[in-house]
Design a protein around this nucleic acid. Sequence first.
DNA 1: TAGCAAATGCAATACTATTGCATTACCGCA
DNA 2: TGCGGTAATGCAATAGTATTGCATTTGCTA
Lengths: 140, 140
Amino acid sequence: MSFVKYSIQVLRSKGYKVTRPRKEVLEAVESATAPVSPYDISRMVQQQGKHLDHVTIYRVLDLLCSLNLVHKVLSRGGFVKCGLLDEPGCHRFLVCRECGVLQEFTDEALCYQESQIARRMGFYPEHHLTESSGLCQRCR
Amino acid sequence: MSFVKYSIQVLRSKGYKVTRPRKEVLEAVESATAPVSPYDISRMVQQQGKHLDHVTIYRVLDLLCSLNLVHKVLSRGGFVKCGLLDEPGCHRFLVCRECGVLQEFTDEALCYQESQIARRMGFYPEHHLTESSGLCQRCR
DNA sequence: TAGCAAATGCAATACTATTGCATTACCGCA
DNA sequence: TGCGGTAATGCAATAGTATTGCATTTGCTA
Ligand SMILES: [Mn+2]
Ligand SMILES: [Mn+2]
Ligand SMILES: [Zn+2]
Ligand SMILES: [Zn+2]
């Protein structure tokens, strides 16, 4: 099932309304390979002759993040759709420092090892949504 | 040797001038346990009856980052002194989601494992400056 | 299809970051 | 120790990002 359709299902199942702005934002994020900022989305929507207030975009993104349908990519100040909707657990990113394309993955062993280190250092580890930087094949 | 003194040495050895603003910023970062933003630093300096333009603070922080004397903590939008000045290689953070205190560490095995995964996914891995979130002892 | 609560749009505002240029001050050298 | 050249700073203007309160609209349920 497509990202948009799946997300709409989740919205409904949790009692959130399926509105035009929410669908627009989902479609914008769906269509992007690299992270998009709230204002990126604003422009994307405009280029289709439509309009969304940026405040609305911020609020929609907040909601989608809280549902783990999209993730914020800190190193880029943008948002991407979750690439592992069906897989629970900790999600990680490889981000190309040059062009921003990224790949999401999850790794049991890595997660475990990190948790161990955290505990050893007196921290109570929580979900990991980490980013590693590198260069994608195109940008090398 | 203290963080400030060490940093001043590095500045000199690379041909950068040791100026009042640079020393002020170093002292502000030195004194902080959690990440501080450029404007945080501005306020800290003011409370000592002094003044630094925020543009200068941004520029100083850029420089210190490029020399790996301080790191930017993305999840907090702030800067901290490097806690492993003598140890080369990839530096990582455990950040308390609640209060922001953090601990820097480095882990050979983790680094290796991550690089492997990156290569397997078609990325050329670079330095890792990752952040994991959790709860510190005080905040549990 | 009417009514209600949730969501949006708007306006105002706060916060964060960057640029160009005139002025200052650090540091090497006399 | 004082001078000169250049790197660094301060200032002003501007751009970009994010948040709040409130009036209005709209999706959904009954
Ligand atoms: Mn994910
Ligand atoms: Mn470090
Ligand atoms: Zn790339
Ligand atoms: Zn804490």
